[in-house]
Design a protein around this nucleic acid. Structure first.
Lengths: 188, 188, 188, 188
DNA sequence: AATGAATGAGATTTCATTCAT
DNA sequence: AATGAATGAAATCTCATTCAT
């Protein structure tokens, strides 16, 4: 006799974990409900349907990541220090809540386009940072930001898929250095 | 020596296009058959099931990309020239067949692990290139390769999602430069 | 002597309106509760279940209509005057409370059979009237009554569905005349 | 001439019968499939969903009734003869296929509004007849037609619900007479 | 070889109703 | 007394796959 969940939280946790482990589309309402210890119908009290649940989860976690990055990048250090703080913050999120981190990565392509326009995206945070660090860049800001995000994400992926040995934070320094080189800020 | 019947081609084209436009899991056998102008049962004459179709498509296009990269990277120029040739080749593939390019990108995480071990992956091609260009790197080769791929892919994504104006090949030079900087090969 | 709590009234109004607008079966407990501004569970405090609610509503409104008709038809005028009074009363009910009028019309086929036997139906009122006006009819009384009701209802429907311009009471005279002709009472 | 697949017919017959016997909303896909001797999924090959099935059935049977009426009313007899032919045709439909007749009656209010505009409705046939029989009527044509239809339908209902003894065709003459009286064509 | 039809399994969603507080 | 939360059952619908011709 499973005890009814007190709120949405257990459902959300179960959903994110399942999505990451089995894939978003391969995880059914039934699986989520079972993992959360509630009935399938209970989900529909809190979200209109499966799509709504996924979008809400994605939105919340994107906002979480953005807040994390914003806080880490807002300090008065050197470019390297600030960048390093951002990379570390993100990789610490992975250490603390790997499911959240991976869920955001895996959902971004499919569900990013459905975020409301007023939600700030991680890439915008990075673009703001680049704008600040390289006020007069020859390259378009979004291009530089994209490159940095690419370095960060793809290195994460290598660890996640086992092509590089973990833990992820091992690579904070190297990733920071590569980002600085892309920005041509590695020669003080 | 039975060669593949001609009738596979329209099915494959329809499938790749649908996968890219609607998502792999959101495209059903019925959709594919309809788009290809054949019956659903016809698909099972050519592939064992849906999974086989996807894997076959993925494999073929990965091999296509690898061959393209291999050919472009195998020349006797400078590091910049070789890298630039590779980036150009890939971005021109996108211009010529955007569906193929995007299909490989979107399928790699889910279907990459199921490729037979003897299929070379694009990342291995890049790793070989890095090994050649930086025989004594302090950083792990897969890390450098991942960073280059990240730069390449994420910049593509910005164009694909409309955050940067196209066409993609506009950014070949910039992407090449950023990759060189990551490799610390930009100061000859 | 427990009298019905005041809080039933808004629920009943919301239910009747929803039933007419969306259909009885397409209106769920949830819709009704929402429209009435109360919780779903509150409904079960007042009625045993959805079926009870519908039957109670139907019964009340049938009795309302019957009372209206009885009062209008019970006067000492000519046949035309009495009939006309009945038609006017009914059509004025529509003008005042179109939802009630239409609810009775739409529910009668499905829920009429479940009315307790002691509830008088509108058609019985009409049959009594016919019996009084045509004591020695060649045709069966229920047939004549049915014809009159048919004329009355179908003309209402034309207005309800917009095939005839409203308001409904515009047609009181014409409907009365047609009923009299059916009864062969139009040549005094 | 692509003839409809044989397999639709048993499904349609089962559906109409169930709808009439249990009510349209109380008959589930499962019931229909079971009664038709096929799987539930088979229904979805032929109609997009339950709603489509109902609308298609309604449309077909309305067209059937209209054709029947058109043919019966198109003869060179007197007004009474033509009207009588129409009433008889309809009542014979009831004798031959009572389910069809009752299905049209019971579905008209809910599904009539969704008929495509180009489908001719029975009432239009009657209106055409009235226009022909009473070229210079004081009353609006739709009103007279509505009254006739009301007489016809409500008398049918009395027999269907057992308030008048059957069979239905017993009342052909009486109904014809009442319609003529409504039209003031009973005094030759 | 090819297809229209069919299907079992299962997914998502809805519903009236009850429960715990 | 009133409600938000929860639920079992069932409804509708989808899907990849197979079958009969």
């Amino acid at each position: 006799m499973p005890r009814p969940p007190r709120s949405r939280t257990p459902i959300k946790q179960a959903a994110v974990q399942l999505f990451v482990e089995k894939g978003i589309h391969a995880s059914g309402i039934r699986d989520i409900a079972q993992a959360a210890g509630c009935s399938e119908a209970a989900l529909y009290r809190h979200w209109k349907n499966k799509e709504s649940l996924i979008r809400a989860l994605f939105r919340e976690h994107v906002e979480e990541v953005v807040a994390l990055l914003d806080q880490a990048l807002t300090n008065n250090g050197t470019a390297r220090q600030r960048l390093h703080a951002g990379v570390c913050a993100a990789y610490q999120l992975y250490d603390a809540q790997p499911h959240v981190f991976r869920f955001v990565l895996m959902a971004q392509h499919e569900f990013g386009p459905y975020l409301p326009a007023d939600v700030r995206m991680p890439q915008e945070v990075i673009e703001d940072l680049v704008r600040e660090l390289k006020p007069a860049s020859k390259q378009p800001i979004p291009l530089l930001a994209a490159a940095m995000i690419g370095i960060f994400v793809e290195c994460s992926n290598r660890v996640i898929y086992g092509h590089l040995p973990g833990p992820l934070h091992t690579y904070s320094d190297a990733v920071t250095s590569m980002c600085l080189r892309v920005l041509e800020l590695d020669q003080p």
